[in-house]
Amino acid sequence: MINFEYSRTSSVKAALDVLAKNPGASFIAGGTNLVDLMKKGVATPQRLVDINNLPLKQISIDAKGLTIGALALNSDVAENEKVKKNYPLLVQAINAGASAQLRNMATIGGNIMQRTRCTYFYDTTLPCNKRKPGSGCGALKGYNRMHAIFGASDKCIAVQPSDMSVALAALDATVMVSSSKGERKIPFTDFHRLPGDIPEKDNNLQPGELITAIHVPVNSFNKNHYLKIRDRASYAFALVSVAVALKVNGNIIQSARLAMGGVAHKPWRLKQAEEMLTGSAIHDLSFAKLTDNIMQDAKTYEHNAFKIKLGKAAIAEAINKALQ
């Protein structure tokens, strides 16, 4: 690892100032992803700005919904009694990710900033347009079992690995961002982006911006489930995952939220499927039609064709589980 400079900062303004003056600087919070990337030589910041002392750790619920400070720990959110009660989908998704130790380190802001686990991205000797623009995509004709089936480009077929992000996408969350220019809100589904021609950009955060909080609107969904299919029972990234939130009244689905993980460069919100589900009777769901529709745009590669069938199965199972 290069020996970088390290400093601490205790206000948002000071943090933004340091970043503005030092283009080679990175913020560090939990460090679970950044330190790992630095060890692998994938990230080489000249300077780390430790933002753990910023006052961005609060978790609050009011009439408008849930606001989570960017520096709240994953475990603090998942253990919060009010969050557990009102946002079970979010809690399930957080607990499906990483390990108890990592969730004690990783922050909410860091979680959504985590970079892909694509092996070609992580290995600096292999080609990767995301790590080194123009070097090619090693996964495209390489080993691509874990890779995207939606929204990929010939520059990049990596997937976003965050479980929590899938739930946040389903729950219509908003990312609150600060910069020297002021504050702005980014709808969660617009936070991450598709790779297109600039796969090095994971998200739509602008240079000099800092995530301060994530807001989740009031949760009216009474049936929730986060299903993660993986190669072992815990502590593994998703082959596919599905976040389901349903508002069921009597036998009728009044509204539905559906998103998938492990299938795209961003959490893959399934709006069309949500519309199909809305108004349906819960005993009369046609999963075949629903999932065929979802998968009609899927494009697979040599090793990940199974994700279509597995994805369909996971969607059906996740909805069934939510309804149980």
Binding site: R117, T119, L126, Y143, D231, R232, S234, A236
Partner: peptide, 25 residues
């Protein structure tokens, strides 16, 4: 143990991607 045959390089040479059983299994 997986290999990228273009480079002849192991591509899951770590304990996140090379899965050994965990307690929950």
């Amino acid at each position: 143990t997986l290999m990228d045959h273009h480079s002849g390089r192991y591509i899951n040479a770590n304990l996140a991607d090379y899965h050994v059983p965990v307690n929950a299994d």
